[in-house]
């Protein structure tokens, strides 16, 4: 018999390393043609770090985004990024980018002030135009002109205009040995998941028929990528909940999965036929424009929502992940025996 159930969960995911002390760096150069080359250390593992850090750089400079090139191909000249893990990049790296942009602006200000024999503090930015406060009519230059002047010299002074920046949420903290006190947490994101399932009581197979997942992400820097992260984390979450285990118990420990065909990850057909996502924003005080990381979290919410839905369907709480057909059937048998 197929029994239907619905369940929900409310979960969190923290951003960055527990205990902090996890810095990132960035560098940005004004190139000879007036574009900007942004160099970051974050590894693009598919989350789109290059894309969003470019968005932050464009906003910090106030220039069209097409003017910004971005690379994370790090060799000898490489900004440090501790890594693309702990959902840390969206909280930490934008600060490094903004600090690098501020540093570059300072360099540009000095260069232009030198050119005009003016005070750097009187140099103002308006997108791609730089001007002398109070004398914009006569004293103004575009980024193209600055770039050409600095890089090629000619009538101007030569210069190499590069800004660098770094940031970390807090200095490193260890746990207090007695109380475990350790207050350093970068930011926390929140998710809510609602799962609808169909449990086949003959076979123990659970189908997730509909799933709604919402994440509160501080600021959705790029909603297209946020969506991908919400719907994508479900893959590992569903596997965790229902099918994936690399630890065998029968007949011996030697029989671990050795092919993707016997390590059961969700396929197109296992994904919920109806999949709905939502984004909520509570700007985080520690983030650039309120942004914080959340992407790992979308794996956290589905497992308990699915377990709650199974409970709603068949009246038993499963306490072992993954809830394989065998686990389900054993739970049903135990329930029957106790009745």
């Amino acid at each position: 018999m197929k029994k239907k159930g619905v369940g929900m969960s409310c979960v969190l995911h923290p951003t960055g390393n527990k205990g902090a002390g996890d810095p990132s760096q960035a560098a940005i150069q004004l190139k000879p043609d007036g574009t900007f080359a942004l160099l970051v250390g974050a590894v693009d593992i598919g989350q789109g770090s290059n894309t969003i850090l470019r968005q932050f750089a464009a906003d910090a400079l106030g220039v069209p985004i097409e003017k910004i090139l971005v690379s994370n191909f790090a060799d000898d000249f490489a900004p440090l990024c501790l890594g693309s893990f702990a959902s840390r990049v969206t909280l930490i790296d934008p600060h490094a980018v903004v600090n690098a942009v501020e540093d570059l602006k300072r360099r540009i200000r000095e260069w232009v002030a030198n050119e005009w024999e003016a005070n750097p503090e009187d140099i103002e930015f308006d997108g791609e135009t730089v001007y002398l406060r109070g004398d914009r009519e006569r004293r103004s230059m575009t980024m193209d002109q600055i770039a050409a002047g600095a890089n090629f010299g000619g009538g101007y002074n030569p210069g190499f205009l590069v800004g660098t920046g770094a940031w970390q949420p807090a200095k490193f903290h260890a746990h207090d040995p007695e109380t475990g006190e350790m207050p350093a947490v970068g930011a926390i994101s929140f998710g809510c998941c609602i799962a609808e399932v169909e449990v086949d009581t003959e076979t123990g197979v659970v189908d997730v028929t509909r799933l709604v997942q919402v994440w509160e992400v501080g600021k959705a820097v790029n909603p297209l990528l946020v969506r991908a992260q919400i719907n994508g984390g479900l893959h590992i979450g569903m596997g965790y909940a229902l099918t994936e285990s690399s630890y065998p118990y029968w007949p011996t420990e030697d029989y671990a999965p050795e092919k993707l065909g016997d390590y059961f990850m969700p396929t197109f057909l296992d994904y919920p036929p109806e999949l709905i996502y939502g984004i909520e924003e509570v700007p985080h005080p520690a983030g650039v424009q309120g942004a914080k990381g959340f992407s790992e979290g979308s794996s956290n919410g589905p497992p308990p929502a699915i377990i709650a839905a199974i409970h709603d369907a068949i009246g038993v709480w499963i306490d072992t992940y993954p809830a394989t057909p065998e686990v389900i059937l054993k739970a049903l048998e135990a329930k029957k025996a106790s009745e």
Binding site: G46, R227, A228, N231, G232, G233, L234, H235, I236, L260, M265, P266, T267, F268, L269, Y271, P273, L275
Partner: peptide
């Protein structure tokens, strides 16, 4: 969903 089912995506981009 049926036709694509033999191709795995661990990032979970099936819906997109």
């Amino acid at each position: 969903r049926s036709y694509m089912a033999g191709n795995l995506c661990r990032c979970g981009s099936y819906e997109e």
